[in-house]
């Protein structure tokens, strides 16, 4: 018994020694290997530091949604507040309004951008002229290039109450009275989607046209031999060939459906309080609660809500993309 234990002991120490040796050997080569790559790691360092500041520190800062922030104790020293910030946020009507607005507008934006761009791309594909389609594309792309501040000026030129082009030149044609566009909530669910199409459809059109070029010519040649019309070719060949791209684009945007285009909802309605009911979205709400009201509890709760639900949606949509087409999944 004793012998066996001793034997076992000897055996095990022998093994330990071997393992220690092996480990030391393995570690030193690994270390040497890493050392060999130090210039590459050094190159990556600035971006690592920057992402820590821009992205990872704020993630740690999400805990302030559970705090009662005051200036005396500082942000992280403030006392815990449990779920009170959330209770407060969701007891207001605002929580419902901003969620509804964000989701509905984004749903309309995703659908309209893709449908309009697909139609434009299919039409451009049929034009026989050489330079005109290029000119059309360049012009359609132009609004994408402008900042939202500029867009707000352009919209103002049309919608301003006193001097706006619409009130002065278009409405009188139909014998209608001038409308205070920036005071009437009911018009904005139509105005904002139109501006969105105007600004973004050109971008998607260019995108679709570019991917149409990659469709093999043999499909069309075979279709022509079979006597298919242009219309049939567009519906039966071009559209199905574009479908994977369209599906992926849609799903990826659905993943971002909880994030609104801040500029569009803040700049274009000129921050007019009278129309908040149809122009306030989560992003503008968080901004106003933070910088206009200085309400850390409310704004951080709304930001937390957006981050977490947004993350779940990105994850879900990517999961579906991966099921459909592994190549195009984000991860």
């Amino acid at each position: 018994m004793l012998a066996r234990i001793r034997a076992g002991g000897i055996y095990s120490t022998h093994l330990d020694a071997k393992r220690v040796n092996g480990l030391a050997y393995g570690q030193s080569t690994k270390w040497r290997k890493l050392l060999k790559f130090w210039p590459l790691y050094l190159m990556m360092l600035p971006t690592i530091v920057l992402l820590l500041i821009n992205n990872y520190l704020p993630i740690a800062g999400l805990i302030i949604a559970f705090k009662n922030v005051n200036y005396v104790d500082g942000v992280f020293g403030s006392p815990w507040n449990g779920l009170n910030n959330f209770k407060f946020l969701f007891s207001t009507r605002d929580a419902w309004i901003i969620t509804r607005n964000t989701l509905l507008y984004n749903a309309v934006f995703i659908a309209s951008n893709i449908i309009v761009a697909l139609i434009f791309a299919l039409m451009l594909n049929e034009l026989r002229s050489r330079w005109l389609p290029k000119f059309y594309q360049a012009s359609m792309f132009f609004p994408f290039f402008l900042s939202m501040v500029v867009v707000s000026y352009l919209v103002f030129a049309f919608l301003s109450k006193g001097n706006g082009f619409v009130n002065n030149n278009l409405l009188p044609l139909f014998g209608m009275e001038p409308i205070s566009w920036y005071q009437e909530p009911k018009y904005w669910p139509f105005i904002l989607p139109l501006i969105n199409i105007w600004k973004n459809a050109g971008y998607y059109t260019v995108f679709f046209v570019a991917s149409m070029v990659t469709i093999s010519h043999e499909y069309y040649e075979a279709a022509v031999i079979d006597g298919a019309s242009k219309w049939q070719q567009a519906i039966r060949i071009t559209l199905p060939q574009l479908m994977p791209l369209v599906t992926v684009l849609t799903l990826l945007q659905i993943g971002r459906i909880f994030y609104a285009d801040f500029g569009l909802f803040y700049q274009v309605p000129l921050n007019s309080g009278a129309i908040y009911s149809t122009t306030n979205v989560i992003d503008t709400y968080v901004y106003r609660a933070l910088l206009t009201l200085g309400d850390f509890g409310m704004s951080s709760a709304a930001a937390f809500y957006q981050s977490v639900v947004g993350f779940v949606l990105v994850f879900l949509s990517n999961y579906i993309v991966r099921k459909l087409d592994r190549e195009n999944a984000l991860f």
Partner: peptide
């Protein structure tokens, strides 16, 4: 992944502002 993760999840405006 360190880079990619920032595309999926962010800390929101309030903590970004405070940082």
């Amino acid at each position: 992944f360190f880079v990619f993760f920032t595309m999926l999840f962010n800390g929101g405006l309030v903590s970004f502002y405070l940082v």
